[in-house]
Amino acid sequence: MQHKTVIVRPELCVGCMQCAIRCAQAHSATKELATAVFEPVLAKPRIHIGVGVNPQGVLKPFPNKCRHCDPAPCQEACMPGAIRSDIAEGSKVVDPALCIGCGMCAMACPYYAIRYHHDLHAPERTITAIKCDNCHDRQKKGQIPACVEACKTGALEFGYVNEHIKKGAGRLANAAWSMQS
């Protein structure tokens, strides 16, 4: 079954980092920006703006987050089974109660999508693996992921991959047609 996912279009990203701020806010205890910044364990973003280079050699922002691969190399490397696919269907979610912070998942992830921070859901551990959870608790309430809600340029979309590909093909056809005319 296809699941809705966050689709990233790096070419549209302007690097404003609103997504990262809203992501951290959505994963804080209070869920409010004004209070989240004063929480004892600061929530961390699970989406990062990396510095990429476009084919013309120009530096470009690159929104980088977990792709929820299937099969997922991080999940295969996780010894305590903390990266679970049964918390939210179609998403690989870190269970902070099981994570031991060994670093194996990040070593297996080719996308630099997993980081280690003090997590408010496992305050007794100094570090826990932190990565995108597709905002599964927001989705349960009928909301879309926080990063997508924050994105003003369309670089982050929430939808079905095949629909997105179809739209892309349409855009390409339009571009080709309008160039000929």
Binding site: H3, T5, V6, I7, V8, R9, P10, R67, H68, C69, D70, P71, P73, G90, P110, Y111, V161, H164
Partner: peptide, 12 residues
Amino acid sequence: NTPWYKGSRVGA
């Protein structure tokens, strides 16, 4: 953005 495994869910 190149896919890691064939069939992986990769955006864009």
